[in-house]
Design a protein around this nucleic acid. Structure first.
Lengths: 113, 113
DNA sequence: CTGTATCCTTGGGGATACTG
DNA sequence: CAGTATCCCCAAGGATACAG
């Protein structure tokens, strides 16, 4: 187990979790991650449908941030009408896998709620 | 793997993760969790020191929310000066364990950053 | 279809002072 | 020591319109 006030944490992170939290901290990011983990190569409009309640603007900005964080990749096909497919990078897949125990905890908790 | 648009998700949660995210979503909550996982029975002032940057007000409100969520327990001793000790419930410990892979992901990512 | 561009709102969190 | 009580701020997110 890592130490909280570990010497050498000059990057502003005291443990690995908060570094991860910065990446998945956006309001809808884990849902987007989950959607792409369930089925990759999803299109923009598809994601909008599968993540109910999100607006175009927020979906777009979240996707862009996740791209910048190296967990989502974007493939644009030069067609008309335009087609864009989103998927997970290797790192995104590993993140998604790392999220599974947390998801199990949430499911379990809901069962007993 | 759970389905995103699972029928029967009338509680507003589409998968287990977002239920978990609601619990750990506060800005400092994972750090508090981590601190109590490392060493339970910590006192208020101790937590304030070990979670650098947090204010009294936010620490107090976070602790109260985590208590309400059933992951933190609070024991007040009737002494003067007052003494209060915070720890994790069973559920809090399980949550903390479920967070470990995520922490590992964050640490790994920092190594390669 | 896949997005920008604007404008606006809200509540989570910060600063500070105070109390039992 | 372990917290409340106030006041305040601002960035994340929402609504809507428009564009290539």
């Amino acid at each position: 187990m890592a130490t909280l006030n570990r010497p050498g944490a000059e990057d502003g992170h005291v443990c690995g979790i908060d570094a991860a939290m910065e990446v998945i901290g956006g309001k809808w990011k884990v849902l987007i991650l989950w959607a792409l983990h369930e089925q990759p190569r999803r299109r923009f409009g598809e994601l909008r449908r599968v993540v109910p309640g999100i607006t175009e603007k927020v979906l777009a900005s979240h996707l862009r941030e996740m791209e910048a964080d190296g967990i989502v990749d974007r493939v644009a096909y030069d067609e008309v009408p335009p087609r864009v497919e989103y998927g997970l990078t290797k790192d995104g897949i590993r993140l998604s896998d790392a999220l599974e125990p947390l998801a199990a905890w949430g499911r379990e908790r809901r069962r007993h709620a």
